[in-house]
């Protein structure tokens, strides 16, 4: 902040040039993201089935959501999926990135292999895992030496969320690995070499040099993980249809159902607005972390 106060006047011209760099993206955002979002907020105050003209409803869509146990269940399912998938994913991704950040022979092969699941479309991935998790499918076959009974992965309220998280980890690890990898490439090697000369152990190296330098990347990774966890839809739709008994009926799924299956667009919009506010609050709470640019 002190830097800002001392900023000399001649920098203003550069500031304006800096702003211009953002303009193309901002224009596109304003048109294709901000405008539709504002429309969504507006529609959330209406009764709207998309076939008849909307009818004003005030805050009715919101008040009915607060007392809806199904919406509450959906919020819970979303949190379970997000934490259950992305906490292990981020830890694994960082570990893998550290392992892959070498010039060992054949490392390109490993990088490509680990990235393969990311490349595949979620629909296909979900179908593959649906087959893998089937009652007498390959996973239960692999587990048969240790389990006396096969597990009903997708039709048991306890196991279905676990199954989805396993699939989610498999699908997403490569994504965050690549991002960490690109971050690791950016760390000047002499930093670590200097530390090594000073006798730092590999653990100390990680703890005091690598991780702090990766902080901007970690900010990115956790934020993106939270958002993609909240937005997942295809996996649940294909693998469990939100079941059993709503155990995997995540928010995106209930939003889509409410809008396009139940034809209650206003209600779906209200759900989105609430979700948006929740995420925004979390983001603002991390604002300092997010906006800090003095690394």
């Amino acid at each position: 902040m002190a830097v800002k106060a001392k900023r000399p006047l001649y920098k203003r011209k550069e500031s304006f040039a800096g702003f211009l760099f953002a303009v193309p993206a901002l224009v596109l955002f304003a048109m294709f993201a901000v405008y539709p979002i504002v429309r969504t907020v507006y529609i959330s105050f209406f009764d709207y089935n998309m076939l008849k003209p909307p009818v004003w409803k005030g805050i009715g869509n919101y008040t009915s959501l607060f007392t809806d146990p199904l919406f509450g269940q959906s919020v819970r399912a979303t949190i379970v999926y997000t934490l259950g998938t992305f906490v292990p994913t981020i830890i694994l991704a960082l570990t893998l990135a550290l392992l892959l950040n070498s010039q060992l022979k054949g490392i390109g092969f490993f990088r490509t292999l680990y990235f393969t699941p990311v490349v595949m479309s979620m629909v296909v991935v979900a179908i593959i895992w649906k087959l893998l998790f089937s009652f007498r499918g390959p996973i239960n076959q692999l587990l048969s030496p240790v389990m006396s009974q096969p597990i009903a992965w997708l039709s048991n309220t306890r196991y279905a969320p676990i199954a989805l998280s396993i699939m989610g980890i498999w699908k997403n690890v490569g994504y965050f690995t690549v991002i960490y990898l690109a971050g690791l490439q950016g760390i000047p090697r002499e930093f670590r070499e200097a530390a090594r000369v000073d006798g730092a152990s590999p653990w100390q190296l990680l703890r005091y040099i690598t991780l702090p330098l990766l902080r901007p990347i970690t900010v990115f990774v956790t934020t993106m993980a939270m958002i993609s966890g909240m937005q997942e839809f295809t996996a649940q739709y294909v693998m469990t249809g939100g079941g059993p008994n709503g155990a995997t009926r995540v928010i995106s799924l209930i939003v889509w159902e409410t809008a396009f299956v139940f034809m209650k667009m206003g209600r779906a919009a209200a759900m989105c607005v609430l979700l948006f506010l929740a995420l925004l609050i979390i983001t603002v709470l991390q604002k300092k972390w997010l906006l800090n640019s003095d690394y």
Binding site: K4, R7, K11, E14, S15, F16, A17, G18, F19, F21, A22, A25, L26, F29, F32, A33, V34, Y35, P36, I37, R39, T40, I43, M50, T223, I227, M230, Q231, F233, I251, S252, V255, W256, A259, F260, M265, A268, A269, M271, C272, L275, F276, L279, L280, T283, V284, K287, L290, L291
Partner: peptide
């Protein structure tokens, strides 16, 4: 760069990520 509204713009851009695509489809 540092300029007026930078952090606001940045947060606004981030915020657009937080809306499920399904619902903005219709106005889009």
């Amino acid at each position: 760069f540092r300029y007026w509204g930078r952090d606001f713009f940045f947060l606004a851009v981030l915020a657009t990520l937080m809306v499920p695509l399904q619902v903005i489809l219709v106005p889009l």
